[in-house]
Write a protein that binds this DNA or RNA. Structure first.
Lengths: 214, 214
DNA sequence: CATGAACTCAATATAATACTTGATTAGTGA
DNA sequence: TCACTAATCAAGTATTATATTGAGTTCATG
């Protein structure tokens, strides 16, 4: 019979297997990507700027602690978040931001763009004074998006600016608060003479908080 | 001007400072203790069965990542959780348990005790067919407890059994699902001829979920 | 100001992690 | 079967984390 102390050791060690999987910047970046949609190893590797081998090894770590799961399609293997992970991820990010206001500061310093909050966005959409523009790649948009959002991937935006109304505020959104696509979009749209701001959160936060998705 | 990649590195590295603090079994056990009430270094050290020096160093890690904070009282220094941490901790524990059913299994195998769920407890308390007994140390009880709970610390329970009603179900609760005091209490109370079960969660979970506290 | 208690710090040995390189496996299609 | 692509594995090195020991602080009290 094991002692109560051994039992505790086992419990907290098992618990720590999950937290250790989250204890690495690259793996957090990977989870942030997977929060949007499942991806292949190669796609993740190029998104985070790492070698395939290194990316694969990080993915093994996440898989071993059952934070992600895999499906095979021919020669490619698709990694996806396990249910329940997105809630923890978003909660953790909130905590990190509350403890380190510099995160927010760094973002502001770097981009200097205006952003719109969730309640303000809701109000603006309801009164039809704004439209929501999702600039993520088509696949991610199709996987999940906010209701009423327009989809123009950032790569196509420059050539499709004429699809945007010019009498409303354009609210650009992408993966999350650290995704820079929305900021690029704001630049582009403003250059065309329209008004634009970025959504201060992102699709990930909204969905994790139970926001309706289409 | 920093590149978008450097900005991302900074963001996820800062983020990982928090997750790294959680990536160790002893530190998780410490957080589980602090979820109940603030404590001195010595108290934590003896609770987790580690040297004062080692405990102090783990606490420094938690403090550096701003997961805990300190207050000095004379020669003793009290460590406490920072606001927002308990939510993350409980969410993480849920995820860990969902991924590792063995945790639950191990608990059941070891204790073999019956437990009562939250809705069932609410109903039983409302109909006055059960009383809730909190067996944590007095200080923790005073720091926060569930409404209507009776307080008899586990050490005093054997000599105070006559304070318990003998016509109602006694529901024992302590810190959390891995705290073994509640199981010991159930043993003792059953030996006195009364009916007893443990509460399947613990005070920590209930409070983190917004349950009313006295 | 000397003492003891509560805690922190510094130095060390050991163990675990991260990233690279190059080899290997699994599946696809000519 | 052969070549090609996607992914994993294995080995080596550099870095980082952990627990122990013993010394050093800080503060209340006589």
């Amino acid at each position: 019979m094991t002692s109560a102390r051994e039992f505790k050791n086992e419990v907290y060690s098992t618990f720590a297997e999950v937290t250790k999987a989250l204890a690495n910047p690259l793996r957090l970046e990977i989870l942030d990507l997977l929060l949007q949609s499942p991806r292949s190893v190669d796609a993740i590797a190029s998104a985070i700027g790492q070698s395939t081998a290194n990316t694969s090894q990080h993915l093994q770590v996440l898989k071993r602690s059952r934070v992600v799961e895999t499906r095979r399609f021919g020669t490619t293997i698709e990694y996806a978040l396990v249910a329940g992970v997105s809630e923890v991820f978003v909660a953790l990010r909130r905590l990190a931001e509350a403890r380190h206001p510099l995160l927010d500061q760094a973002k502001r310093d770097y981009f200097g763009e205006a952003s719109i909050s969730r309640p303000a966005l809701r109000a603006a959409l309801a009164s039809k004074t704004a439209v929501l523009l999702d600039v993520r790649p088509r696949l991610e948009f199709e996987h999940a998006h906010l209701p009423g959002a327009l989809s123009i991937p950032i790569r196509e935006l420059a050539s499709r600016l004429d699809e945007l109304p010019d009498d409303r505020l354009i609210v650009a959104t992408c993966r999350g608060p650290y995704c820079t696509y929305a900021d690029e979009a704001v630049h582009l749209i403003r250059a065309s003479g329209r008004e634009a701001v970025r959504f201060e959160d992102g699709v990930g936060e909204w969905v994790a908080d139970g926001g309706a998705i289409a």
